[in-house]
């Protein structure tokens, strides 16, 4: 899958690219408004990461162009501004998601995964990973065709792991993912343990392999 990263901060763009490249993504970069337009008119992408503050033009204008060109790709805005108006405006114009800098790379990967799936697999959105099957529309999980009942948070965590497979994810990133804005006001992320423990137990009981590994004591990895 191809991703276009429109970001003028080279270092940030290269980090994102390095994180995403490898598993299933191929990343290309654009640093300016013009650069981005040229690439978009020639190539087809599955997802576009768009920084709102670009040299040579406002990112929101570029978004309008993208929509005008009827580009199919999902668009995720990444902005340093974190202004409510920008977020609303961006989503109104047609962006699929909005992320404020700074963000966790794993969170970004999860959002990209979700946007791409939504765009491409509209009606039969099923993830199959060995014996695990996730029905994204019904929000159901099956192991060997047997239904596993997960809580909302456990389900969210499972998707997060699947969209970040083979990556080390910190407890911090997981906490922020399942508790949203509230989590970053706390320094104790122990509540994440309980959810992960339960998820692991439920999957194991249903007969799934042990994909969820604990690393270095407090990191996690969906090893597949």
């Amino acid at each position: 899958m191809k991703i276009l990263i429109i970001e003028d901060e080279k270092e940030l763009a290269s980090s994102i690219g390095a994180y995403l490249t490898g598993e299933q993504y191929l990343c290309e970069y654009a640093e300016t408004f013009k650069d981005a337009l040229e690439k978009l008119s020639v190539y087809v992408y599955d997802c576009i990461l768009l920084d709102l503050m670009l040299p040579g033009g406002d990112g929101l204008r570029l978004l309008e162009e993208i929509k005008y060109m009827k580009v199919e790709a999902g668009v995720i805005i990444i902005s340093a501004k974190n202004a409510v108006e920008d977020k609303i405006k961006g989503l109104q114009i047609g962006a699929d998601d909005y992320m404020a800098k700074p963000f966790h790379l794993s969170e970004l990967a999860a959002r990209i995964y979700s946007v791409v799936r939504r765009k491409q697999f509209g009606n039969s959105n099923i993830i199959q990973q060995n014996e695990i099957r996730v029905d994204l529309l019904a929000k159901m999980v099956y192991v060997n065709e047997k239904e596993v009942t997960l809580t909302r948070k456990e389900y969210d965590l499972l998707l997060y792991f699947i969209s970040n497979k083979n990556k080390v994810i910190s407890k911090n990133a997981l906490a922020e993912h399942i508790s949203g804005d509230v989590a970053d006001m706390f320094d104790n992320y122990d509540f994440v343990y309980a959810h992960i423990k339960n998820l692991k137990k439920k999957l194991a009981e249903a007969g799934s392999g042990n994909y969820l590994k604990t690393l270095y004591g407090s990191g996690y990895k969906w090893d597949i």
Binding site: E9, E11, S15, K101, P102, F103, K167, Y216, G219
Partner: peptide
């Protein structure tokens, strides 16, 4: 915000290194 985002992303990349000790 931007430098913070860069530092965070670099640290998270470092975290992905294969031969990290605890």
């Amino acid at each position: 915000q931007t430098p913070l985002a860069i530092v965070q992303s670099k640290l998270e990349l470092l975290m992905q290194s294969q031969q990290l000790t605890t």
